[in-house]
Design a protein around this nucleic acid. Structure first.
Length: 108
DNA sequence: TGAGTGACTGTAA
DNA sequence: CTTACAGCCACTC
């Protein structure tokens, strides 16, 4: 076990668990999968995320849409479509829409 | 092999 | 949650 590709799969899995109208941070996902120091890799992993992964719901710890420049299409608009208020590439009331990812089965 | 870069985070002031 | 500094891991040249 412990393959390199597992890291990506875990990121995708957690990202898919994000409910609508909610967002999470890269560090939260990184910690969820057991690598809180690889937060940067989470963002890099989402760079090649499939379409079924709501990458637009993943932002940095400040609630800023840091990935907007890399996301295909209007990331801020997509968030607002789900009920998330965004202003100047920054999530409004970020703490209220923040979603803490549960610990998934790392061996599954 | 080593330096540079990046969708980051935590701590300090 | 502002700004500044350092640590972090993987990728590219």
């Amino acid at each position: 076990m412990s393959e390199k590709g597992d890291f990506f799969e875990r990121v995708y899995r957690v990202a898919r668990l994000i409910p609508e109208g909610r967002v999470t941070s890269y560090g939260a996902i990184a910690r969820c999968i057991g690598d809180p120091r690889s937060a940067r890799m989470v963002g890099w992993a989402l760079n090649g995320c499939p379409e079924d992964v709501p990458a637009h719901r993943v932002v940095n710890r400040n609630g800023t849409l840091t990935g907007k420049h890399h996301f295909f299409g209007g990331m801020a608009r997509a968030l607002q479509e789900e009920g998330i208020k965004v202003e100047d590439d920054q999530i409004v009331n970020f703490q209220s829409v923040f979603w803490d990812p549960p610990k998934i089965n790392l061996e599954e």
